[in-house]
Design a protein around this nucleic acid. Structure first.
Lengths: 191, 191
DNA sequence: TTTTTTAATGAATATTTATTCATTAACTTG
DNA sequence: CAAGTTAATGAATAAATATTCATTAAAAAA
């Protein structure tokens, strides 16, 4: 059988595991399934990952690195604070739609017992760019007087909820829906 | 060993399963654990439930019944539409805090492959009271012109996000936090 | 090309977990 | 209270899944 480069194989395994965790959850993840989905033999997975638990932890760290700031790029040119928020929020929304598998995995991981060893605060790493932005907004008095976490909830809570409705087929998300929703969320966090 | 009434035992099993599903997910739920947590022998669980899958489905149906409109009681006396929304929203918020286990279970179930057989739209049953209320609000032009689902997302999205932050220990939720947050979410859905 | 090294394979084994069922304990009835 | 009935028990068995490893195939070195 043709050899493939190692990093590629690790990537195949990650991809397979990601898909399967979404369908079945962590405990429902079967190593044999991962192998089949990745186009490999069962034993091969064990060449790249010590065991199932390690695979899950490494996949988490992999996705964490991959996702952080993936949505937070290209914000330099924005002048007005409102436009900056709008830009970041829309990029986050689109990121969540395009990478819903990754987002769902991270959410599951944070709720699962796998996290307990690591730092609980870890669960906010994804929102770093938002929190940084809020610091500026609060200083410049462009945002309501409230904890950063509340502002975060007001901005991203609706995004997650809409994505859930989207997944169910209850709500169709289009660029214009995204635009008009931003106006609404901005209304409640702006000063 | 002392006999207990059947409904009580079923309730014990539900309680145990609920706790365990939260910790480990559906596939991670072990029948032996359920039994121990419920203070019963393994075999006893099988007297009340055909198998693990049945237990999970029945627990879902049980919680669905239990939760629906649990938070939507005592709304009759409210005169103004704003106060009605405020009342329902606050009751929902408190419900989510007090019954976070149930809410989390329902969310997990909806995302899991267990749902697929049943109707997908099922996932909105919890929000029935909100959607009904929105019908009135839209008719009376007290709400922004938007799909009910978007209004729902703007109202309950932040609640779920805040509860997540609360669980992490990142945000402390007090009655006054709830009150002031309502003012913010109302700001973005009111007309 | 031949030899050596490295990686992949998947059937076999170990482990975990679901489920059953012969036995025992608790209730019920006469 | 004795006989009969129903429920509970948990060790034994079945089924599912993780993990290993002797074998084979591919790549690298000689």
């Amino acid at each position: 059988m043709a050899r493939i480069r190692d990093e590629q194989k690790v990537e195949l395994i990650y991809q397979a595991a990601l898909e399967l965790v979404l369908k079945q959850g962590f405990s429902g993840l079967k190593m044999a399934d991962v192998a089949v989905h990745a186009g490999l033999a069962t034993g091969t997975v064990y060449i790249y990952f010590k065991d199932k638990e390690t695979l899950i932890h490494q996949l988490y760290n992999h996705l964490k690195k991959k996702c952080v700031e993936m949505y937070a790029e290209g914000l330099e040119g924005e002048d007005s604070f409102r436009k900056l928020v709008r830009r970041l929020w829309k990029q986050f929304f689109n990121f969540c739609i395009e990478h819903s598998a990754e987002v769902a995995f991270l959410e599951q991981y944070h709720r699962s017992p796998y996290l307990k060893s690591q730092n609980k605060k870890d669960s906010n790493y994804l929102y770093g760019p938002f929190l940084d932005m809020f610091s500026r907004g609060l200083q410049e008095k462009r945002l309501i007087k409230a904890d950063k976490e509340i502002i975060l909830a007001l901005l991203v809570g609706p995004v997650h909820e809409m994505i859930r409705l989207h997944r169910d087929g209850t709500l169709k998300i289009t660029p214009s829906v995204i635009d008009s929703t931003f106006e609404h969320v901005w209304e409640c966090v702006k000063r």
